[in-house]
Amino acid sequence: MIKVGVLALQGAVREHIQSLEACGVEAVAIKHKEELKDVDGLILPGGESTTMRRLIDKYDFMDSLKEFAREGKPMFGTCAGLILLAKNIVGYSEPHLGVMDVTVERNSFGRQVDSFEADLAVKDVAGGFPAVFIRAPHIVEAGENVEILSKHDGRIVLAREGQFLGCSFHPELTDDHRLTAYFVEMVKEAKSQKQAV
């Protein structure tokens, strides 16, 4: 049995927890860094990346999150969470966690009035996946080990690099839990591999 955490400093935490529970796994809201050791995978939810970063620094979360990544445990960043994972952010000299080999641009589809819903073709997951984009970022450039799982309008909006999964949109805002289930499988695989070693 696996346990998946949702970083609960700010943002759409409840929705991710519900989506994880709908996938049949135990979900935990992570408010303190000590709680990270109890989970096998972590979702970095949507919210305001600048706010989350401030709270990550304030509560000394950064090293624990990087350690979590080093241990090979899967991490899934949605929207602001993708920005936290990325190695490069357009217009900023420093990344946040900087663990996933992608360059992202913030608010790259425009302001809130330009926010939209669209059906996406997602490799290995769905032909038509309902995606909600809210002041969304997108992946401008992906490193050679990054697998592009979905594009919208020619822009990369979902990608995976080994243990890291990142998307521009909000899979937690609909009742379609297939992408969460995909991440849950990543967590299960990582855990069983670790136990096999």
């Binding site: 400093l9 700010q10 943002g11 706010t51 926010s115 669209a118």
Partner: peptide, 19 residues
């Protein structure tokens, strides 16, 4: 592609939660 849907408008507020 649809803009201004309930999901997009309410979703924006969901992202502000805890803030």
């Amino acid at each position: 592609m649809k803009t201004g849907t309930d999901r997009v408008k309410r979703g924006m507020a969901e992202m502000q939660k805890g803030g």
